[in-house]
Amino acid sequence: MLLALAALTTLGLGLGLLLGTAARLLKVEAEPITAELEAMLPGSQCGQCGFPGCAGAAAALADGRAPVTLCPPGGRDLAQRLAERLGVSVDLSGMADAGPRIAAVDESICIGCTRCFKVCPTDAIVGAVKQIHAVIRDACTGCSKCVDICPTESLHLIPIPVTPQTWAWPKPAHTPVLAKPVLADAGCH
């Protein structure tokens, strides 16, 4: 009896000591994740998330101060990748996602005030004083800064136009024969 108790106690203490030593000696420094998160963010520093630029947002994400759904230009896809990277589960079905969008100028009411291209974080709007401005589609991130500042509301966001080069097959409908079309109800209205 005593022997058994002693043996088990010794075993427990010995193993505990071993584990403790191992934890201290073989400690793996946690990789600073902030830089990696920042690389995943769009990088347009648009500030829509409420943090000062993408670096600030990445720091907030790493500390858990911000939800993965914080970035409107990144959309649902980015939220999903952030959730994967951070190892959090998140319900994205509620996240409104109109897909990636870009700005477009309504040429009939643009007055050529130049305000929009002064705020554009990627220099995606070109023009000059009293000239109609135009958006370079490949450079626009859809951050909506220009939309907010336009005095005549001639700027608005549109979905990126689909061309045969960018068109892709939609996801196939999932299979089970449900008595109640649960998914359709949730998705359509």
Binding site: G43, D123, D138
Partner: peptide, 13 residues
């Protein structure tokens, strides 16, 4: 690729 381009453009700006 677009995002990379954005980053480049932002940096250039």
């Amino acid at each position: 690729l677009r995002q990379d381009a954005t980053k480049r453009l932002t940096a250039e700006r």
